[in-house]
Design a binder for these strands. Structure first.
Length: 221
DNA sequence: AAGAGGATGGCCT
DNA sequence: GGCCATCCTCTTC
């Protein structure tokens, strides 16, 4: 279902209806699609699903606040948040209004605007330009000005274009990264073998000398 | 290759 | 006041 699942031919913007589906389906189908902003395009290789009020790891779990309000709105809008005092991350809202599900764009490959992306990122290898959610935002110059942007609207500064569908055999899923709650849920999707997929890092306890907690290697893309 | 620690600010209890 | 959906550098193996 090449056309049906992505909702558009490669290179054309994904319609709003693409996002108005269960977040797990949207997250998986975003693999291979291209996010475009201000002269840089990134082909997505890693996406995570967050399921609104049902998901203890979601920013929406404790209800609507000023910060997460966009998540409670219509699908196809960007939820951009600031974290760790210095980083931005971008999600795409999924499902109907009020559900507050979203897909976190975790990593990708820069396919256009390489020089611009490299300049924004400082000295960085091609592989690392958008390898990780905050790096991806930095390469694309995404910040809070874009919180709420409608990526399906014609003329929007931030857009998402359909790619050719990634074959099922190349889609892998596993635990999400960097969260302490519901981390075991296998709601992270990535393209098998792609070197721009971020390294798997389990949530690190803040305390010093925390023994045990060995994690098996998920993948080395 | 892998782990530790710092940077740094807003959000929520 | 604590906790982050992180990244970078440095250290050690």
């Amino acid at each position: 279902m090449t056309r049906a699942s992505t909702g558009a031919r490669p290179g054309l913007p994904l319609p709003a209806g693409f996002y108005d589906r269960p977040v797990l389906d949207v997250a998986r189908d975003l693999l291979g699609c291209v996010i475009d902003h201000d002269g840089v395009q990134v082909r997505l290789t890693e996406v995570e699903a967050y399921d609104g009020a049902n998901d203890p790891a979601s920013h929406a779990y404790r209800g609507e606040t000023a910060r997460n309000a966009v998540m409670f709105g219509p699908p196809g809008h960007a939820y951009v948040y600031f974290t760790y005092g210095m980083h931005f991350c971008v999600n795409l809202v999924c499902g109907p209004p009020g559900v507050a599900s979203a897909a976190l764009l975790r990593a990708g490959e820069v396919v256009a605007g390489f020089d611009r992306a490299a300049s924004r990122r400082g000295s960085s290898t091609a592989r690392d330009l958008a390898r990780g959610p905050a790096r991806l935002c930095q390469a694309l110059d995404i910040d809070r000005r874009l919180d709420g942007a409608d990526v399906a609207r014609r003329g929007s500064p931030l857009r998402v274009l359909a790619g050719s569908r990634v074959p099922e055999a190349l889609v892998r899923r596993g635990p999400r990264v960097g969260i302490s709650k519901a981390a075991e849920w296998p709601w992270r999707f990535w393209i098998d073998g792609d070197r721009t997929v971020s390294a798997y890092r389990p949530h690190l306890a803040r305390r010093k000398n925390q023994p045990g907690a060995r994690i098996e290697v998920g993948e080395d893309a």
